[in-house]
Nucleic acid binder design. Structure first.
Length: 586
RNA sequence: GCCUCGGUAGCUCAGGGGAUAGAGCAGCCGCCUCCUAAGCGGCAGGUCGCAGGUUCGAAUCCUGCCCGGGGCACCA
């Protein structure tokens, strides 16, 4: 409908330009929005107020001229000029009729824009280090990314979803060493477990796996392991130096092959755990992109070579720096350390280049808010590589804080005292978790109320929406029991009998669904869809309490059933995009 | 100090140039011989952090300040 009105106004403005009423080169951003007050019609446009000044007349006068030139449309009953110069559009009965018809005809595809009608988008999200189970912070990024990807797809983008796996680097070495130390412990060796090693119980599980595959092959005495290591943090030394020395010691005692075997078991175990976790959360990826592969394929060297060629690299104090500060970043960034190893950022640059090569459209990054400092350096990298930084889109997801019994749940990753995504799913269920994570703007801190998420009452928005869907199904079940059939054709012919206020409101709201998808996609904001579904559910519940569906009158009954079914379609389609189920009964 | 997100009803949050600023929860008052009351209706509740500015019009945009979250490694 919005697009239709825009078309009408564009035509009218065309005539006015031709007549010289408004300037020809006047670029106008025609804004059409659903009204808040039904007295103002269904959609309002402020274009007359925007153009009044340059046209040299008052807004109402210009609105009058636009109105005269407006082509007639079957979908518009009336257009009024109101207030300071708004053009208020009232939808016709015909329009409301075709809304229901379209929804019933398109079913699960209602609301979708034609595939590939918008540029392709490569979206990368979660990308948590495979050094431990996902926690509730990752959960929000996962829910946001997956919902957004589905919405973008529905809005007409071709979407590729990727998880970037940091399977290289020091954190993975620390995990491998942690596993090996637990393995030694399980083998009966007395070894000290460092402060900075991974403390979680899952490390024992992986260690058991190492033992079952390798037996005592990787066993070394506690003395061999700890002999002349620098002191750990709590021993008055440097915790980082201690663990680095331990990594070196592990490699030395195990040899490259065995060390890599432990490393591989740890990586494999964590990845399959994460993959399974996300899978159960309804979050899937098209590609799990390995950081190591960037080294192995030469992509990393290639990317650095490109930067060097364009003169953005510089050697200083034995390290190689990317001159990011000349491209808008705060400071220069190291790509090759003085010990010869490349940095994490160097891999990022290579991955960035590969993404832009593979996807001709936008590359969309979903970061936790704590990574916002990465934005300028990646934009600088894109520019340094000779790519367009505007092809990068960064969305930052703010933190989620869990509340139970009205109290904040304290978490600390270091000590392993955190709630995992799996714990959360088991406690509140997948549906509630998915909805709660995205019901607030991603730019907003989220207070996640566990008690509310578990509630089976209308105070819980997920429940409220799902209940509306289940109620509709139950109407059709009752119809069945009565031995009656729903006849869509009769309903369609009689749709104009739906004149009650709740019915009219619902009809209009259902017609807005495709615009909601478009909007949520454009603004990268799944919460817009979450709010909309809540609104639809509310309008349905309200209607349900005011009207009887299974009435004697064939016309009226079928008309109401048509609207109920259309409502169910919209609820189902929308819930599906945000990964929430639409139950048949509750 | 710099960067970033936020400050809207008692609480949690929508609205992000337009008309009288909305919803849920909490509070108060009502509604089931009837398709799910796991629901609905009503009442009450506001200095949109503060101060300037731009505009026909500012919760919304700009500047400054105050308050809170987060970030500023040759860590990942």
């Amino acid at each position: 409908m919005r697009a239709h009105i825009e078309e009408l106004i564009t035509q009218a403005l065309g005539y006015l330009k031709r007549d010289g009423v408004i300037e020809d080169d006047q670029a106008v951003d025609i804004q059409i929005e659903p009204t808040k007050d039904p007295k103002h019609g269904d959609y309002a446009c402020n274009v007359a107020m925007m153009l009044a000044k340059s046209a040299g007349m008052n807004p109402r006068e210009l609105a009058e001229k636009i109105l005269k030139r407006l082509p007639s449309s079957k979908r518009v009953r009336e257009v009024q000029i109101a207030g300071p110069g708004f053009l208020n559009f009232f939808a016709s009965g015909h329009y409301l009729k075709i809304v229901v018809r379209e929804i019933l005809a398109q079913g699960e595809h209602y609301g979708e824009a034609p595939a590939n009608s918008l540029e392709p988008i490569l979206i990368e999200f979660v990308s948590a280090n495979p050094t431990g189970p996902l926690h509730v912070g990752h959960g929000r990024g996962a829910a946001y990314g997956a919902s957004l990807a589905a919405i973008l797809q529905a809005a007409g983008h071709t979407v590729e979803k990727e998880y970037y796996v940091n399977d290289d680097g020091r954190q993975m070495d620390i995990l491998a060493v942690s596993v090996w130390l637990r393995y030694l412990e399980l083998s009966g060796e007395r070894v000290r477990f460092p402060d900075n090693a991974y403390q979680g119980d899952y490390v024992y599980e992986i260690a058991r796996e190492v033992r079952s595959r390798h037996g005592d092959d990787m066993r070394h005495t506690g003395h061999e392991v700890s002999e002349s290591l620098p002191a750990d943090g709590d021993q008055g030394g440097d915790a980082e130096a201690h663990i680095d020395a331990l990594i070196a010691r592990a490699k030395e005692l195990l040899g490259e092959t065995d060390y890599q075997a432990v490393f591989a078991i740890a990586l494999e175990a964590m990845l399959s755990d994460i993959r399974e976790d996300l899978d159960e959360f309804g979050v899937t990826f098209d590609r799990w992109y390995s950081e190591r592969s960037l080294h192995e394929s030469g992509a990393l060297d290639q990317a650095l070579a490109t930067l060097k060629e364009k003169d953005w690299l510089e050697t200083r104090n034995g390290a190689v720096w990317f001159k990011a500060s000349e491209l808008g970043d705060d400071k220069d960034r190291v790509v090759i350390r003085d010990n010869g190893r490349s940095t994490y950022f160097a891999s990022d640059v290579a991955y960035l280049l590969d993404k832009l090569d593979r996807c001709p459209g936008q590359s969309l990054y979903i970061f936790g808010a704590d990574h916002h400092g990465y934005v300028p350096r990646l934009k600088a990298a894109a520019q340094g590589l000779g790519e367009d930084p505007d092809r990068l889109d960064f969305q930052l997801v703010q933190f989620a804080v869990l509340y139970r019994d009205g109290k904040k749940i304290q978490m600390s990753t270091r000590s392993g005292q955190f709630v995992t995504l799996r714990d959360l799913r088991e406690e509140v269920g997948k549906d509630a978790a998915r909805y709660f994570y995205i019901m607030r703007s991603h730019e907003q801190h989220l207070d996640f109320d566990l008690d509310l998420a578990k509630s089976k009452a209308s105070e819980n928005p997920v429940f409220y929406i799902q209940y509306a869907h289940a109620r509709i199904q139950s109407i059709f079940n009752k119809l069945d029991e009565a031995g009656q059939r729903h006849n869509q054709a009769i309903g369609e012919a009689a749709i104009s009998q739906l004149v009650a206020e709740p019915e009219q409101a619902l009809l209009r709201a259902l017609g807005r669904y495709p615009e909601v998808i478009e909007n949520a996609a454009k603004r990268r904001a799944p919460h817009i869809l979450a709010h909309y579904l809540y609104e639809i559910a509310g309008q349905f519940h309200s209607w349900y309490n005011h009207a009887q569906f299974l009435v004697e009158d064939d016309d009226l009954r079928n008309a109401r059933l048509n609207l109920a079914q259309a409502t169910a379609h919209v609820l189902r389609n929308g819930l599906n995009l945000i990964g929430v189920s639409a139950p048949e009964s509750m």
